[in-house]
């Protein structure tokens, strides 16, 4: 995990507009985009396809409750 991502409290949301033909296509692109960005645990929070494309909000969890949060244990990260 990158040093920057260690400072994320729980999740990273990517919000954008995808040029695509359908919601199904938008879903595939969204997950592919997150995987390419290095988020293996990605889920779609919001998706709406109309006309030229889809408004999406995709989430990659860095930490879920009960994980070992680096921002919590690493003193440098708390400073």
């Amino acid at each position: 995990m990158s040093k920057a991502l260690e400072k994320v409290m729980d999740a990273v949301d990517i919000e954008t507009f995808l040029v695509c033909d359908s919601e199904e296509e938008a879903k595939k692109i969204s997950i592919q985009m997150m995987n390419e960005l290095g988020f293996s645990d990605a889920s779609i929070v919001f998706i709406q396809h109309l006309g030229p494309g889809a408004r999406v909000r995709v989430r990659g969890y860095i930490y879920k409750p009960g994980d070992r949060y680096n921002w919590f244990y690493n003193k440098k990260n708390n400073s």
Partner: peptide, 13 residues
Amino acid sequence: ADEAYSGGPISAA
């Protein structure tokens, strides 16, 4: 803002 999202825990953001 995650009220209707059921795919995972609520985020701080």
